[in-house]
Design a binder for these strands. Structure first.
Length: 429
RNA sequence: GGAGCUGUAGUGUAGCCGGUUUAACAUGCCAGCCUGUCACGCUGGAGAUCGCGGGUUCGAGUCCCGUCAGCUCCGCCA
């Protein structure tokens, strides 16, 4: 008999089916036992009559055969009257280290992460990665539909995009290499290679000594780079469009998950913008907070997020016109204001989820910038050489996938949005 | 790199200005009863050398030092 998923049982009411899954919960009433069966599609109630069952415990892997019956007394109006229950795989634990079947997560983050396979079985935790999957899927769909090519760039690299201090060194045969902190150089090179528009879903590695609820040392970067732009506003426009698409598609594809997290997604509309200068003036005026040249710290991000939400109703805010000193060497300076760059950040609920901007496409300008930044152009040979052969005006941005997931679901810690987070202390599981 | 906080059954917490219990509560676990549960209920039971090491003291889960682990924040960033 073909396997039926919990979700599909309803369509087979009156028929005999075979279901497979885990014992989510047992309610033993003596001569009657209710078994909640969990599979990848969800939960369904199985009714076992009599006392004669195989040894069932929570999380035992079982196969059930029985008739699908519609019943007002069943949790979802449908249940399985079991004729046969078979243990496919027994459990051997003394205690479950965490509650797989609770509606709320009471365990601490450490317990959740140490027992990741079990915590991911909890439907609430499970849902986080269904949402994340849909974010990535929507990202791919959206950009493919606009003529972007999906690329895969190396994660073992020779030099960093912003220096070398925050990179993980790798012993690479007889020399030293690093884990890529960003696909920056390579995605620009793919624009130059004639693909014009590229995107990548890939890991980025940061050896920063940070230990906060919004930082990981390994994270998924949703990268975009496109050629033949007018300026950074083209990039902001397409990111804005992507977010509107995402917010349309997510409720359709994982509305249940958002409901569980009590989140309602509404069209972000046109995202408001402030220059860094305007934002600083506003922070000074509204909150008496002064910041050093071009700096927007974490507290400022939160305040701006709150302010914009109150003023415009938007959860998003673009910050633009960052000073040269606050941006990497490849950031395009403004023609009429060379101390500022054509770059932007995107805040979502008071947290930076994107950095982007127009890049320098002139070989000479880039070379001179590197010298001005105290970098040795020879260290960037293959990247710098690219610009000798005709690179269109271009730019791009990157979205932190875990950060977006976290903010969408209002998670308290970014580690919850990573299957197996890597932070300063954690390399296992 | 800097700063602060926490560590008590499987899990989540209480107890913490030294002595009142055999360290409490919830949940989970085990056993028994129950044919409509849905966080099932009821009865009974097991489960903690209070992270580890040292010190102060007549006496330490409680105070001090060290150590390990975790969390949070700053800088930096997605």
């Amino acid at each position: 008999m073909e396997r039926t998923l919990a979700k599909e049982a309803r369509q087979k009411t009156g028929r005999r089916v075979r279901l497979c899954g885990w014992v989510h919960r047992l309610r033993d009433l003596g001569n009657l036992t209710f078994l909640m069966l969990r599979d990848r599609s969800g939960l369904i109630q199985v009714v076992l009559e009599g006392k004669d069952h195989p040894e069932l415990r929570q999380e035992t892997v079982v196969q059930v055969e029985g008739k699908v019956v519609a019943s007002d007394k069943a949790p979802d109006g449908v249940e399985i009257q079991a004729a046969k229950v078979e243990v496919l795989s027994a459990v051997e634990y003394d205690y479950l280290p965490l509650a797989v079947n609770s509606g709320v997560i009471k365990e601490g983050l450490d317990t959740i992460l140490n027992h990741r396979v079990l915590s991911l079985r909890n439907p609430l935790v499970h849902g986080i990665f269904l949402v994340q999957q849909e974010i990535v899927r929507a990202f791919r769909e959206f950009f493919r539909n606009r003529g972007f090519t999906e690329i895969h760039t190396p994660k073992i690299v020779a030099e960093g995009a912003e220096g070398g201090a925050e990179m993980f060194p790798v012993k690479y045969f007889k020399r030293r290499a690093y884990l890529a902190q960003s696909p920056q150089f390579y995605k620009q090179m793919m624009v130059a290679a004639g693909y014009e528009r590229v995107f990548e879903v890939g890991h980025a590695y940061r050896a920063e000594l940070h230990n906060t609820k919004r930082h990981l040392n390994e994270y998924i970067s949703l990268d975009v780079e496109m050629g033949f732009i007018q300026d950074e506003h083209d990039l902001m426009a397409i990111e804005n469009e992507f977010l509107r698409y995402l917010f349309t598609v997510l409720p359709e594809r994982c509305g249940e998950e958002f409901a569980k997290y009590g989140v309602e997604l509404t069209d972000p509309g046109a995202i408001p913008e402030l220059t860094v200068g305007e934002a600083q003036a506003l922070l000074k005026k509204e909150y008496g907070k002064s910041l050093a040249g071009g700096n927007i710290d974490a507290e400022a991000e939160k305040l701006l997020g709150r302010y914009i939400k109150a003023k415009t109703g938007s959860d998003f805010l673009f910050l633009t016109a960052f000073p040269v000193a606050k941006r990497p060497v490849y950031a395009m300076p403004m023609a009429d204001e060379p101390a500022l760059t054509k770059s932007f950040d995107l805040l979502y609920k008071g947290l930076e989820i994107t950095t982007g901007g127009q890049r320098i496409h002139s070989h000479r300008m880039l070379y001179e910038k590197m010298v001005a930044f105290g970098l040795n152009p020879e260290d960037f040979g293959f990247y710098l050489d690219t610009f000798k052969y005709g690179v269109p005006p271009h730019g791009g941005f990157a979205i932190g996938c875990e950060r977006l997931t976290m903010q969408l679901l209002n998670l308290a810690n970014i580690r919850e949005a990573s299957l197996f987070p890597r932070d300063m202390e954690r390399v296992t599981p």
